[in-house]
Simulated scan of single mutants.
Amino acid sequence: MIVRLTYLSFLPNNLVQAKQIYHDEVVPTVRKQKGNIDCRLLEPMDNNDEYISLTTWETKADADAYHSSGIYRDLVNKVKKDFAKDPVLKVYVSESILEHA
Rank of each mutant, 00 (worst) to 15 (best):
M1E: 03
M1Q: 02
M1D: 06
V3Q: 01
V3H: 00
R4D: 10
R4W: 01
T6N: 05
Y7D: 04
L8C: 02
L8S: 02
S9M: 03
L11F: 04
L11V: 07
L15C: 09
V16Y: 04
A18I: 01
K19V: 09
Q20Y: 08
I21Y: 03
I21A: 02
Y22F: 15
H23A: 14
H23S: 11
E25N: 06
E25L: 05
E25Y: 01
V26S: 01
V27S: 05
V27I: 12
P28V: 08
T29N: 02
R31T: 12
R31K: 15
R31P: 03
Q33L: 08
G35E: 06
N36A: 15
I37S: 10
I37A: 10
C39Y: 00
R40P: 00
R40H: 11
L42W: 04
E43L: 08
P44Y: 07
M45S: 14
M45T: 14
D46E: 12
N47R: 08
N48G: 14
D49W: 05
D49V: 02
Y51G: 09
Y51N: 12
L54A: 05
L54M: 12
T55K: 00
T56K: 08
T56Q: 09
K60N: 05
K60A: 06
A61H: 07
A61W: 04
D62V: 04
A63W: 00
D64G: 07
Y66H: 06
Y66L: 08
H67W: 09
I71V: 14
I71Q: 04
I71D: 03
Y72Q: 12
V76C: 12
K78H: 07
K78N: 08
K78A: 05
V79F: 05
K80I: 05
K80C: 04
D82G: 06
A84C: 06
A84G: 13
A84N: 09
D86T: 11
D86E: 15
P87I: 15
P87G: 15
P87N: 14
P87E: 15
V88M: 14
V88T: 14
V88A: 14
L89R: 14
V91T: 15
V91Y: 06
V91C: 11
Y92L: 03
Y92M: 04
Y92T: 08
V93G: 01
V93T: 15
V93K: 01
S94D: 14
S96R: 00
I97H: 00
I97M: 02
I97L: 02
I97T: 03
L98A: 10
A101C: 12
